[in-house]
Simulated scan of single mutants.
Amino acid sequence: MEIRSSTVLPATREDIELHTADGLTLVGELALPPDGRPVATLVCLHPLPTAEGMMDSHVLRKAANRLPALAGIAVLRFNTRGTSSDRGKSEGAFDGGEGERFDVAAALEYAEFHDLPNPWLLGWSFGTELALKWGHDPAVKGAILLSPPLKRATDADLDAWAEFGRPLVALVPEFDDYLRPEEARRRFARVPQAEVVGVDNAKHLWVGEPYVRIVLDEIVKHVNPDAHPLPTEV
C-alpha cells in the first residue's frame, strides 16, 4: 500500500493532559510505536494559534500518523495555552510566545516523567520560536525547525542555543513567506552546530505530499538515522 496524505499507520494513541507551572491544563495526544518501545521522542510545537495553528496542523498530524510505525518514534502533540483542535481547548490564553514557556516546560516534564527517551523538539513556524526561546532543557537532544520566521526569536536566542550546544536543524522553504534559505543561512551562521536545509519549491505551509515526505525524512535522518530513508509503501 502506498503511503498517502490520509494514511494512518498503527500506533498506541492516548489522549493526555499537561499541567503547567502557572496552573493551566493543556490537552494533547501521545502516539507510541505499536510495540510501545520508542527509540526517540518528538515534542511538537505547533504554528501560530491566531492563524489557525494547532496540534493537528497537517505536518504534525502526519508525523503522529506515520513515524511511530515507520521509525519507532514517539510523537507528543499538544495545544498551547488557549489553542483549540478536535482534541479540545487548552486552558489559558495566547501570550505571544512568553507565557508559552510554561507550556514547553510542561511537555518536556511529561516526557521525562513518562520515560520517553531522547526528546527532540519539532517546531513549526511559531513553534520554532518557542523551541529557540524556551527549549534549553538539559534533557533535549536537539531541535528541528520547520519554516522558522526568526521574528520573536532574536539573535540573542540564537546565541543562547549556540551556547546550549545541541543540534539544530532548520528546514527552510525556497518560497517561504518570512525567511528564505539564503537569509536563513546568514542568520543561523551564529549557531556553529546549526544546519540549514533549503527545500526547493516548498512554501511556508509545506502543502503537498512530496514536501511532507521531505520533512519527515529529514526528521528521521536526525532523530533515528537507522530508520532513514522512510519507505513510501507499507
Rank of each mutant, 00 (worst) to 15 (best):
P33S: 04
D157T: 11
A31P: 05
R101N: 02
P10V: 09
P119K: 08
G135K: 07
V207Q: 08
L60M: 11
T7G: 13
A40K: 01
D95I: 07
P149G: 14
N118V: 13
P231Y: 13
K89G: 08
H204N: 01
P38F: 03
L121N: 02
P231N: 12
E100T: 10
G142I: 03
P148S: 10
P149Y: 15
D226K: 14
E52F: 11
A105W: 01
R101D: 00
A69R: 08
E218P: 02
E163V: 10
R37S: 11
W134K: 08
R180G: 04
F78L: 06
I219N: 00
W161F: 04
A143N: 07
G198E: 04
R152M: 14
T128Q: 06
L179S: 00
A63S: 05
T25G: 02
G142D: 03
G88A: 09
S84D: 08
E100S: 09
S90M: 11
G96D: 11
T50M: 11
L60A: 05
P119N: 12
L70W: 08
D177V: 05
V169C: 02
D157N: 14
G165Y: 07
F94T: 12
L145G: 01
D200K: 13
A31L: 07
R4Q: 14
R190Y: 00
G208E: 06
H114F: 12
V172N: 00
I3C: 05
A105L: 09
H222F: 05
A131W: 03
H46P: 01
V43S: 02
S57K: 02
E109H: 10
L60Y: 06
L67G: 03
M1V: 06
K203L: 05
V172M: 04
N118S: 15
A63H: 03
A143F: 07
D137M: 12
L205K: 06
P149W: 14
E174R: 01
D15N: 08
I219R: 00
V75H: 05
H136S: 13
E91T: 07
L18D: 04
H222V: 07
G208Q: 06
L179Q: 00
N79H: 09
F102P: 00
V172R: 00
E163M: 09
D15L: 11
R87N: 10
A21K: 11
I214N: 04
D95G: 15
D226Q: 15
A160C: 13
L76H: 08
N201I: 04
S90R: 09
L70K: 10
S147C: 08
L205Q: 06
L121V: 10
K221T: 02
A111W: 02
D35L: 11
K62T: 09
G208N: 10
H19N: 05
R213L: 11
P49D: 07
D115I: 11
A71M: 09
R166D: 02
S85E: 08
N118A: 15
P225C: 10
G28R: 01
V196Y: 00
V27E: 03
V59I: 14
L230F: 10
E52W: 09
V196A: 00
V8H: 13
E218I: 02
L32R: 01
T128M: 11
P173T: 06
E100F: 04
A74D: 05
P210F: 03
G53L: 01
D159R: 15
C44H: 02
W161V: 03
L122V: 15
A227D: 07
S125N: 15
L9Y: 09
M1C: 12
A156D: 13
